[in-house]
C-alpha cells in the first residue's frame, strides 16, 4: 500500500467529507438507525452496495489515470458510468460536490497533468473519479484507490452516526474494525477491474432504501449534514 492513501482516507483532509452522512442522518430521523447494531447493519449494506460501486469505479479511475487503459474511452465516459449507477439525483449531487472538493485539494497536494486533464474534462467529477485520479497522482495503485473508496463508504457515515445519536465512539469503531475485514485488500479479490476493462461490466449494486433516504434528506427542513 502506498502511504499517500492514508492522507486520502483521513477524515481531516480538508475536502469537505465531514459535511456528508451518506444517508445516516435521514436513517436516524426515520428511526431505521437507532443504536450500534442497527448502525452496523446499515454500514454493512452500504459497503456492499454503493460502496462496492464506488470501490470499482475508483479503481477504474486510478487505472485510467495511469494511462494503461487503451481504448476509445475518456473521463466523461467514466463519469457517465457513475451517473448510470446513481439513480438518485441527491446522491449524484453529493458525489459531485465531494468529487469537486477532493479534486481541488488533490491538485494542490499532488500537482500532475492527469488531475488537470480530469478537471478540464469534468470540472465536478463524481467522487470515485476524483479519488482514483488523486490516488494515481499521489503514486498509489488501483487497489489502494479501491481500499480508500471502500473505507470512505463507511467511515463518514459511522462518525456522522456518533454525532447524531451520541453513540459510544469506541463501539462504533469496533463496527468499523469488524467491517474492515470485508474491505478489498488485494487486486482481483473483489470487483476490481483489469486496467483496460470496458467499464460497462463494472459492478452496479443498488441500495433502494438509500435512494429513498437521500431524496427525503434533500427535502428535509432541518438537517445537520448536506447528504
Amino acid at each position: 500500500m502506498n502511504a499517500a492513501i492514508l492522507l486520502l482516507t483521513d477524515s481531516r483532509l480538508p475536502a469537505g467529507g465531514h459535511a456528508h452522512s451518506g444517508g445516516v442522518e435521514q436513517a436516524v430521523t426515520s428511526g431505521a438507525v437507532h443504536d450500534v447494531p442497527s448502525l452496523g447493519s446499515f454500514l454493512r449494506g452500504r459497503l456492499h452496495t454503493t460502496g462496492a460501486v464506488a470501490t470499482a469505479l475508483a479503481a477504474a479511475s486510478c487505472a485510467f489515470a495511469s494511462g494503461t487503459a487503451d481504448g476509445p474511452w475518456a473521463w466523461d465516459g467514466l463519469d457517465a458510468e457513475v451517473d448510470a449507477r446513481t439513480a438518485s439525483p441527491a446522491q449524484r449531487a453529493a458525489s459531485r460536490v465531494q468529487g469537486r472538493l477532493l479534486l481541488r485539494v488533490a491538485r494542490r497536494l499532488w500537482p500532475s497533468p492527469v488531475l488537470e486533464e480530469l478537471a478540464g474534462a469534468v470540472p465536478s467529477p463524481h467522487h470515485p473519479l476524483a479519488l482514483g485520479a488523486a490516488a494515481h497522482a499521489a503514486g498509489a495503485a488501483p487497489e489502494d484507490a479501491a481500499l480508500a473508496a471502500a473505507y470512505h463508504a463507511i467511515s463518514g457515515p459511522a462518525t456522522a452516526a456518533v454525532r447524531l445519536l451520541g453513540l459510544d465512539p469506541v463501539a462504533v469503531h469496533r463496527l468499523l474494525a469488524d467491517l474492515s475485514r470485508e474491505l478489498p485488500t488485494a487486486p482481483g479479490e473483489r470487483d476490481l477491474p483489469p486496467s483496460a476493462a470496458p467499464w460497462a461490466d463494472l459492478p452496479a449494486h443498488s441500495a433502494p432504501a438509500l435512494d429513498v433516504l437521500a431524496e427525503r434528506h434533500a427535502l428535509a427542513q432541518v438537517r445537520l449534514f448536506v447528504s
Partner: peptide, 12 residues
C-alpha cells in the same frame, strides 16, 4: 445480513 440492512431493503 444484507437484505435486512436499513440501507438496502430494510424490512421490505
Amino acid at each position: 445480513a444484507l437484505d435486512t440492512s436499513p440501507a438496502v431493503y430494510g424490512d421490505a
